[in-house]
Design a protein around this nucleic acid. Structure first.
Lengths: 200, 200
DNA sequence: GGTAGATATGTCAAGAGTGACATAATAAAT
DNA sequence: ATTTATTATGTCACTCTTGACATATCTACC
C-alpha cells in the first residue's frame, strides 16, 4: 500500500466521497501537505476496491452526471488504523526556494530581493487563509477541534501544522530578503521588533 | 532543465566536485531540502556535460580509485544565475506525518502519543545538529555568513530554513502528542511555558 | 591470501507523479 | 443553437525518483 491509498482512506473514513470530491479535498485540508491529481485518484480507487478496502455505489443525479460514491470497508478502516501509528519513513522535504537561496550569492541582489519579497507575500496570504479557516473551525465545531477522538481534530491538526509552517516560511523569506538588501539584524537571536518601513 | 540540474550547478559553483562528492553533499547542506541518490546524479552530470554546462577532468589518485572532477562552464554559471531569481512553481510539501495526524482520531491514543513523541525527539535532534552547524559556520566564516555576496551565505541561508522548520516541527509534534494525551493548553495563543513532567 | 569497508562510477527496472488527451452530462449564458 | 463552465470519470505518455544490481580500486585488518 502506498501513501496515496492511506490519504484516500483517511478522507473516506470521515465521509463518503466520489473521486471528484476526493480530488477537491486534495487541494485544501489534507492537500496542503499531500496533493494528488484526479489522474492518480481514479486508478488508486480502483486498486483499493480490488483489494477490498473500499466499495462504491452509483448515485444517479438529475442535475449533474451520475457519480460513484466510495466508502471504506471494515478491512479498509482496520489497515488505516494500523498505519496511523506506524512511524513514517524519514524523507527530506523538497523545497526549490531553499535551493535558490543556496545560490543567491551569485544573483543580482535586486532581483533576488524581489523574489524573496514576493514569496514572503504569497506565504503571508496562505497564512491569512489558514487563520480564517482556524477561526471558522473553532467556531463551527463547538470545541470539538481540541478533542482528539473527534474527526474535527483531524483537519485542525493539519491546519495547525500549516499555520506553523507558513509562519516560519514568512520569517525566513523576510530574513533572506533583508539580508540581500543589507538590512538584516546582525544578531539573529534577539526577538524581532516590527520595523516601520521608511520610504525608499 | 530540471531542478536537480540546478542543484548540482549550485554546488559546483562553489567548488569542483566529483559525482561521489555531490552524492555526499546531497545529504546534509542542500540535501536537507533537496536530496538525490547517485543513480540520479551520474546521469544528470552526463546530461549537463552534453549541454555544455559542466566539464570534467580525470584526477588520478594513488590512494583511491581515479575520479572525474566536474566544474561549471561560463554557460552553466549563466543559466544558474538566471534560474536563481526565477519564481519557483508553487508545489505543496508532502508530509506523511501530517497525513497520519489527519487520521489520528481513529487510532489508539497511547500508540499515537508514542509516535508523535518519537517524532518530536527526532526533530529535536535534527535541530541540535543544525544549531551545532550554525555555531561552526558563524565561527569559521569570520562573519561572512551574513554577507549575501559570499558563498558562505548560501549554506547559512539553507541552514536557517532548517532551524526554523525543525523548531516549528517540534512545536507541532508536541502539541499533537499533548492533545492526544489530553494535556494540551486550551488557549493556543498563550505563550508556552515549560511544564515539568510528572511521573505517570 | 581473504575479506570487509570506503571510495568511485555506472545501468536498469519499477513505482510515483504530472500534464495532456478524451469523453460525457447538465446548467447557464449568449 | 452554440458556447462556456462545472461536474464527473477515465487513460496515456512522459518524467522523476528509488532501490537494486553491477563493477572496480585501494586500505586496513585478520
Amino acid at each position: 500500500m502506498k501513501t496515496l491509498g492511506y490519504a484516500i482512506l483517511g478522507l473516506l473514513a470521515q465521509e463518503e466521497l466520489s473521486g471528484y470530491d476526493l480530488m477537491q479535498r486534495m487541494k485544501g485540508r489534507v492537500g496542503n501537505f499531500w496533493s494528488a491529481g484526479h489522474s492518480q485518484i481514479y486508478p488508486e480507487l480502483a486498486r483499493l476496491e480490488a483489494d477490498g478496502l473500499v466499495t462504491h455505489s452509483v448515485v444517479k443525479q438529475q442535475e449533474r452526471p451520475d457519480k460513484k460514491v466510495y466508502e471504506t470497508t471494515p478491512e479498509g478502516l482496520k489497515i488505516l488504523r494500523e498505519w496511523v501509528t506506524e512511524p513514517p519513513p524519514a524523507n527530506a522535504p523538497k523545497d526549490e526556494l531553499v535551493l535558490k537561496a543556496y545560490s543567491v550569492w551569485l544573483a543580482d541582489p535586486e532581483k533576488a530581493a524581489k523574489l524573496f519579497r514576493d514569496e514572503e507575500t504569497k506565504h503571508k496570504e496562505q497564512l491569512s487563509r489558514y487563520k480564517e479557516t482556524r477561526s471558522w473551525m473553532e467556531h463551527e465545531s463547538g470545541g470539538d477541534v481540541l478533542r482528539p477522538e473527534s474527526p474535527w481534530f483531524a483537519g485542525y491538526a493539519a491546519l495547525r501544522r500549516g499555520l506553523i509552517y507558513e509562519k516560519g516560511y514568512v520569517e525566513w523569506c523576510r530574513w533572506v530578503a533583508d539580508s540581500v538588501e543589507g538590512k538584516q539584524d546582525d544578531s539573529p537571536k534577539r526577538k524581532k521588533k516590527k520595523v516601520k518601513k521608511k520610504g525608499t
